[in-house]
Write a protein that binds this DNA or RNA. Sequence first.
DNA 1: ATGGGCACCTGGCTGC
DNA 2: TGCAGCCAGGTGCCCA
Length: 249
Amino acid sequence: MLDVIVRERRLRWPIAAHFEAAIRGQTVRAVERRAKYILIRFDAGTLILHLGMSGSLRLVKQGTSPRTHDHWDIHVDNGWVLRFHDPRRFGSLHWTGTDPELHPLLAKLAPEPLGPGFDGEYLYRTTRKRSVAIKQFIMNSQVVVGVGNIYASEALFRARIAPRRAARRLTRKEAFALAEAIKAVLGEAIKIGGTTLRDYVNADGAPGYFRQQLFVYERKGAACRVCKSVVKQFVQGQRSTYWCSTCQH
DNA sequence: ATGGGCACCTGGCTGC
DNA sequence: TGCAGCCAGGTGCCCA
């Protein structure tokens, strides 16, 4: 890597002053992921990136003029530039010189939803004694990671569970159904490129086609695709929840 | 330990 | 056409 240029340090957390010096001249050894954090490993340490709600990473040819909200560039020595764009600045960038799994942002993260540590048995066990609404429970990164607002509503619909149910009130059977629904929803969404609601596009500039598979999300007032009842919406933990009160109990 | 609410931002859309 | 108000794909942190 040849150089690093930071134009705007004020992301969700300010980019540390030592960031440029830490990675300048280093070689990328691996790119990994944990929850929604992107990990770029170098010999001397690891970059921990998050795209927040509006962030994107793009490879552009060296010499391409930055646009508004292009906050930093990593110039690699084959003529390409890894460029971070984030209008809302909810994204973040951290550098760690030690094991990234020990970093405070990653240390307490729950199992990956598509990994071996997450299944019906795990979900049933962890829901016991928890009074919080099940929708907020599955969006808690100390329970399971990667379940965002869209997929939380969709998974609950598929499992036929009402979003306001207390987590502890789920039966064993329901916990198993919900774990399977979470895996299915995320697996399908990943397969077809995610969910484009407004301006989201993938690395090639293509939209995600999961929007066409949504049963309830952003369908307030529309007919439930299963029973034709009107899809409802309310706010839970400052986030919109969508559901069908006929299909879900 | 748990749960609830707030915070960080810009941009796009809606309705007056 | 302009503008105020509202909403948004996330999640860490503070407080009760």
